Computed example of a mutant assay.
Amino acid sequence: MLKYKRILLKLSGEALAGNQKFGISSDVLDNFARQLKEVHDLGVELAIVIGGGNIFRGIAGQEQGFDRATGDTLGILATIMNAIALQNSIEKMGVPTRVLTAVQMPEIAEPYIRRRAIRHLEKGRIIILAGGTGNPYFTTDSGGALRALEIGADILAKGTKVNGVYDKDPQKFADAVKYDNISFDETLTKNLKVMDAAALSLCRENDLPVIVFNILEDGNVKRMVNGEEIGTIVKN
């Protein structure tokens, strides 16, 4: 019995790099594609928002001399590159997929139109929503929260390299404690960096639950949609 019928899966761009420092790992892409096909075959309507941090991060670009708006624009283009790569891997598995972008690129992908995106889902296609919101100063977390609400997703699932939300960085502190459930208010008060504050506030105001889990562990997407206890759930 599926717990979630329509989900928006926010994928970390950094996760696409795998063990590399940057770029796209074909092994990680294939792993993602297999997991996505698995849940698609269960009848889940699946929308994906993907980051671009494996190629370029807007905020990091400021350290290289880019102004924030220019850096974010490069980051937006990076998400579109990742979306096309992921589409290719999913379609090799025989699953129909559409890339819709928040910026106009008609020769490469469809423009994002809410009704069109929903129609693709209803027809059994996986949709990849690239380009964030199309605006600088907004992260792909904010783009994910916005798109999840627009398409009526049951949950916003954030696939990362870690298996949930901790009170401090588990990669730096051995005594870090994992939360199974936590409220939006506590997450914001403790500044736990689950997502950026704008995205969390949007989810809180519209009562959209968020689950944070390890996307790199094979089978976790299926476990998540079936309602198994993995990762951390953030909700009101």
Score class of each variant (00 low, 15 high):
L2R: 08
Y4C: 03
Y4E: 04
R6I: 02
I7M: 04
I7V: 13
L9N: 01
K10E: 05
L11N: 01
S12H: 06
S12E: 06
G13H: 03
A17R: 04
N19T: 15
N19G: 14
K21G: 13
K21L: 14
D30L: 12
A33Y: 02
A33P: 04
R34W: 08
L36V: 11
L36F: 12
K37W: 10
V39Q: 00
G43Y: 11
L46N: 01
I48Y: 02
I48R: 00
G52I: 06
N54K: 05
N54E: 10
I55R: 00
I55T: 05
F56R: 03
I59M: 13
G61V: 09
Q62P: 06
G65L: 09
F66Q: 06
D72T: 08
T73P: 05
I76V: 13
I76W: 04
M81H: 11
I84S: 06
Q87A: 08
Q87S: 10
I90G: 02
E91A: 11
E91H: 10
K92Q: 14
K92G: 09
K92E: 14
M93D: 11
M93R: 13
M93S: 12
M93I: 14
P96G: 09
T97W: 05
T97Y: 04
R98T: 11
Q104R: 15
M105W: 12
M105F: 15
P106W: 14
I108Q: 13
A109H: 04
A109M: 07
A117K: 01
A117S: 11
I118N: 04
R119F: 14
R125S: 12
A130S: 12
G131F: 01
G134H: 05
Y137D: 13
Y137G: 12
F138V: 05
T140N: 04
T140R: 01
A145M: 06
A148W: 01
G152D: 00
G152Q: 00
A157H: 02
K158R: 11
K158L: 11
G159W: 01
K161Q: 15
V162F: 07
V165T: 06
D169Y: 10
D169S: 12
D169E: 12
Q171E: 15
F173P: 08
K178H: 09
K178G: 10
I182P: 00
I182T: 06
F184R: 00
D185R: 11
E186S: 14
E186D: 15
T187I: 07
L188C: 08
L188H: 05
T189Q: 12
K190Q: 11
L192R: 05
L192C: 07
K193F: 11
K193H: 12
A199D: 03
L202M: 13
L208V: 07
L208T: 03
I211H: 02
I211G: 00
V212S: 03
N214W: 08
V221W: 00
M224H: 06
V225N: 01
G231R: 01
T232L: 10
I233Q: 07
V234Q: 01
